[in-house]
């Protein structure tokens, strides 16, 4: 049985604990045993996007201390319900932690985004969830372009029996962008509207993505203007967990 350490991410920990719990359920349904390193905090991404790499590096050192200390013989993988936080570790850590580059690269090599771990590492597309619904996918940017993800979420959706309806430009940014969403709220909001419009065009029930930040942005906009015919934004872990049989 593969043993997985959950890299929960600060957003899931503090704002969306249900999604974190759903991630655990999905991993267990796929046959993994999950542990939670309690000393973890945040990967440091907010600081690096704000232009403060020194502050980000301090968090990165802590993250590397916590997860790097896990015995590779015992823990098979570190898994996060976020393409963006995974990309922080895999794409940015080796350069940010130049003096611990070898350690950082080893950590990056065993850190995975949830769908990446399920589909590409475990080779599982059917975790036993059953969904009788329609879904459209938003490709979150960092998963797509820093990690090369794309088909994984779609295969899991179809593996659960749901119908996939592609929107126009599923790979165009939703406009969140961290500090960008505060610094340039008008453009950020227009990009969200455009994404929500494309999603509505599919008449799907759910708008699924692998990044909570994008979903928070899209759902925040959707709630502000009223849902209308826009699909409900939902994280892939929540969607899959909703189709699992109730926990005994």
């Amino acid at each position: 049985m593969p043993k997985v350490a959950l890299f929960v991410t600060c957003v899931a920990d503090q704002v969306f604990p249900d999604t974190a719990a759903a991630t655990v359920r999905v991993l267990e349904a796929a046959g993994a045993e999950v542990v939670f390193p309690a000393a973890q905090t945040c990967c440091g991404q907010p600081a690096i996007t704000a232009g403060e790499p020194a502050a980000a590096a301090r968090l990165a050192h802590h993250h590397l201390d916590v997860f790097g200390a896990l015995d590779a013989g015992e823990i098979d993988a570190i898994v996060a319900p976020s393409g963006s936080c995974t990309a922080m570790v895999c794409h940015h850590y080796p350069a940010l932690l130049a003096e611990r580059r070898t350690e950082a690269e080893a950590l990056a090599a065993r850190t995975f985004e949830l769908t990446q771990y399920l589909v590409d590492v475990l080779g599982v597309v059917d975790i036993g969830a059953r969904l009788d619904t329609t879904v459209t996918v938003h490709d979150a940017c960092h998963g797509l372009r820093n990690l090369g993800l794309g088909h994984e979420t779609r295969r899991l959706v179809e593996g659960a029996g749901a119908t996939l309806v592609e929107m126009t430009e599923p790979d165009t940014c939703c406009g969140f962008g961290g500090v960008f969403s505060f610094g340039f709220p008008e453009v950020s909001t227009r990009l969200a509207d455009s994404k929500l419009g494309h999603a509505a065009g599919t008449s799907a029930r759910y708008l699924v993505s692998g990044d909570l930040a994008c979903l928070m942005h899209l759902d925040g906009r959707r709630r502000k203007v009223g849902p209308g015919t826009v699909p409900q934004p939902i994280h892939i872990a929540d969607l899959l967990a909703s189709g699992l049989p109730p926990k005994r």
């Binding site: 939670f36 309690a38 709220p185 909001t189 759902d219």
Partner: peptide, 28 residues
């Protein structure tokens, strides 16, 4: 303070009543 730039066009979710780590600690 400082969330106005976000909240004028988007709702912002509040922190959950119980964090995941607290929930995990209780359950385990």
């Amino acid at each position: 303070p400082g969330l106005q730039a976000w909240t004028s066009t988007r709702e912002l979710p509040r922190p959950a009543r119980e964090s995941f780590r607290d929930r995990w600690a209780k359950e385990h």
